[in-house]
């Protein structure tokens, strides 16, 4: 395999640019925020982070979702913690999200718009939650 240069990287990205502009105006992008303090790292948040990056990048409808990390959210007992803010969905904090749990969250929460109840740590009060527009 020939070495991937910065220039090649630029071209790869540019080739996908028009598509990106369309997605962004669509409002389909969202944000995944992963807690990666000492506790998160020790609990496997690095693997969780990678699992999200790879799962989203491989999915045409999700590759423009932002993946970010932050320090400890104060819930060390439930690491790795992941906050998911998708348009049309309440912002939800999930706990104990190991890499193996990522496909379920991607499938249910991101694609089908359904919460993965058994992993929810925190969500807005029920009367603030609006059903997702389809």
């Amino acid at each position: 395999m020939s070495k991937l240069t910065l220039e090649a990287l630029r071209k790869l990205r540019e080739a996908k640019r028009n598509e990106m502009a369309r997605r962004e105006s669509d409002g389909t992008a969202g944000t995944i925020l992963i807690g990666m303090g000492t506790c998160g790292i020790a609990a496997g948040a690095r693997e969780t982070f990678d699992a999200f990056v790879e799962a989203l990048a491989a999915h045409p409808g999700l590759k423009h979702v932002a993946v970010r990390q932050t320090g400890c959210m104060g819930l060390c007992y439930a690491e790795p913690t992941v906050e998911i803010a998708m348009p049309g969905m309440p912002t939800v904090l999930y706990g104990r999200v190991k890499a193996e749990g990522v496909p379920q969250i991607v499938e249910e929460h991101l694609l089908k718009g359904r919460l993965v109840s058994e992993r929810v740590l925190d969500k807005p009060a029920v009367d603030l939650m609006k059903p997702r527009k389809s």
Partner: peptide, 8 residues
């Protein structure tokens, strides 16, 4: 900012 950029 997005997953695709990070994967690249």
């Amino acid at each position: 900012g997005d997953a695709e950029a990070l994967a690249l």
